[in-house]
Design a protein around this nucleic acid. Structure first.
Lengths: 343, 343
DNA sequence: TATTAGCACTCCTCTCAATCGAGTGCTAAC
DNA sequence: GTTAGCACTCGATTGAGAGGAGTGCTAATA
């Protein structure tokens, strides 16, 4: 598609532009990097690359910047397989060791360290309970009127909720109900439970009508433990350091969007592919981030995908480094979570 | 201290400056507000107010802006007792009803709505478990090697953790341990437990040396459920709309600070007073926010202080409205939490 | 034929001075 | 005590000019 020299020049332009944020001129390029060719030659090649759609010119007498297509080619064809620097890997390992003490902190700190290393915003989705399997529920006494229902998933994840005990119900009754329910639901996913199994239980419990209403009321409360998918956000301020966002108005829209959790999940859910995936500029479906790029990877525990890691930044981003960091992190996170034995 | 006319002028200047963000001149003031006096008179009064330290001049030929002392006087003496608008109160009530479904969302949405109404950053601290009273703990089976320890507080708040069962320990053993521990710890605060009671238990358990090590190991794990105080942040982007932060560099420091949760707790903990408290500019101890003001209030459930609500914004903020919102919210939040019966 | 040097041209950016205007302080009149 | 009038101040805006990085084209070179 492109001869070696054009590739080399395109690559050098991207590399330079990513670090300097200034349009790259032929003279600068020749002086700064020893390409063995003169500025004039570079100019000719640049003109070609522009016609081919890999470069753009902000205005007539400026240097070139990579076009979205240029970035795409760079990412697909010019980038060496992303490999994280040893020092970075060590830094991440240490960070986890020194800062993470609980499951929730795993996600928080993961988001934090990714943004720290990539100078962009990071997004980490935590696993959703609706994909988990119901193991059992149990009631714990609280006082005369209230009890705590604890729902345990197959993997040991626990959600709990304080519930009102319906009038005339004893704690004993609750335990009966629990036994009944556990029989029925063990091994089902929360998604399944919500949509189809409730009705069946209802019929079953009809055989003991005394507890019918209580059981259903309690169960409904118990299943409300499910919470919507949580997105951990890290380092939104990193964006402020980028020249792209030197203008306050430009960044405001983006940050406002980042405060909308729903949008974030949407952005991340668009991608379920394998490995590290890059979405550049207008390739993004959501128009609010069409001057941004997203790099994302899923992470797994014991083979099962349970969440997504992503980095959001200006299209002028360090694709190589970011991909390497995510490549490393999605594995490392899986292992860390295994240690927490919660999934 | 100040005669009526000076008060009126100072108040008008603060009100105008808060909305326009422009230094207020005598001519503008006379034209915009019907004070019944001429620009020249206003000029004289302004000069007096400046000498008294209530106003400042950015430069010789600019209008006046309130000094920190001016804001202080405005807040202490010129502001009518903060009263929330009925429409705002209704808006808040509706917001809760339509958006809040779980305890955690109470805090998230509280932060969100406060910032929405005040156009500034809001901070909401969630209750800390270390102030809560231990009620009991219970083990739930998970598999051969692992169990879940559930710690319940007096008020029904639940924390849980997956623990490794020490080799050679049966689930039966765990339940014995639980009974023993619950006897000892019921009614104590987590703070107390951590610092003094553990030793006692250790001696007690010595009478059953078989379980000694197991019990301590398990208990240590169980108590690690405590997490540090969480601060919910809302509407950091609101700051971007303020002219004070039109310059990206100015806002970066502030936003970076807001990402440091520790600092936030510090800022909020400086104030344990009664009612709504305002801290203006350099009155803040932390130098990073000395061009900002903080308005905060504690909230209670059944008489006990359990957290703080705060608003952080430029010193040029709508003190009256913000105080009214917090006044309303700290009560409303208390009631909402009572509904959730978790404290 | 591919590469390079030279050159005229473009257009952004920075600087500096002139202008504008909102606001002040002072003085004198009311 | 209040107000009108006026000279003065000083930041903000505007516009012209210089500087510089970069381009495209042409002609010379290897």
């Amino acid at each position: 598609m492109l001869d070696d020299r054009k590739r080399k020049i395109l690559q050098t332009i991207v590399d330079d532009y990513v670090t300097t944020a200034e349009p790259v001129g032929s003279r600068t390029l020749a002086r700064k990097y020893s390409l063995g060719i003169s500025p004039a030659t570079i100019r000719n090649e640049m003109a070609d690359l522009e016609i081919l759609g890999f470069l753009e010119q902000p205005h007539t007498s400026a240097g070139r910047i990579p076009s979205p297509r240029g970035y795409r080619f760079y990412v697909d064809c010019l980038l060496a397989p992303p490999k994280i620097a040893d020092s970075d890997a060590k830094l991440i390992t240490n960070w986890y060791e020194s800062r993470v003490r609980s499951l929730e902190e795993v996600f928080q700190e993961t988001a934090k360290i990714i943004s720290r290393m990539t100078h962009a915003v990071s997004l980490v989705t935590a696993p959703q309970i609706s994909k988990a399997l119901f193991k059992y529920l149990q009631f714990l006494p609280l006082d005369e009127r209230r009890a705590i229902v604890v729902v345990v998933t197959d993997a040991g994840y626990v959600e709990n909720k304080v519930i009102e005990m319906p009038a005339g119900t004893s704690f004993q009754d609750l335990q009966e109900i629990a036994a009944n329910i556990n029989d029925k639901l063990a091994g089902l996913s929360f998604g399944q439970i919500k949509h189809s199994v409730l009705r069946e239980i209802r019929n079953d419990i009809l055989s003991n009508p005394a507890l019918f209403e209580t059981a259903l009321a309690v169960l409904r409360q118990a299943l409300a433990v499910e919470r919507s998918e949580k997105v951990y956000l890290g380092g939104a301020t990193q964006l402020l350091a980028q020249p792209e966002f030197r203008d306050v108005d430009k960044i405001r829209g983006l940050l406002t969007m980042l405060e909308e959790e729903k949008l974030l999940s949407d952005i991340l859910h668009m991608q379920d592919g394998e490995g590290v995936v890059v979405t550049i500029g207008q390739e993004n479906k959501y128009s609010g981030i069409q001057n941004c790029s997203v790099v994302q990877a899923t992470y797994r525990v014991e083979g099962q995908v349970i969440g997504t890691l992503a980095v959001l930044g200006p299209t002028r981003m360090e694709y190589g480094k970011i991909m390497a960091v995510l490549e490393f992190m999605h594995q490392h996170l899986g292992e860390t979570l295994k240690k927490y034995k919660a999934f």
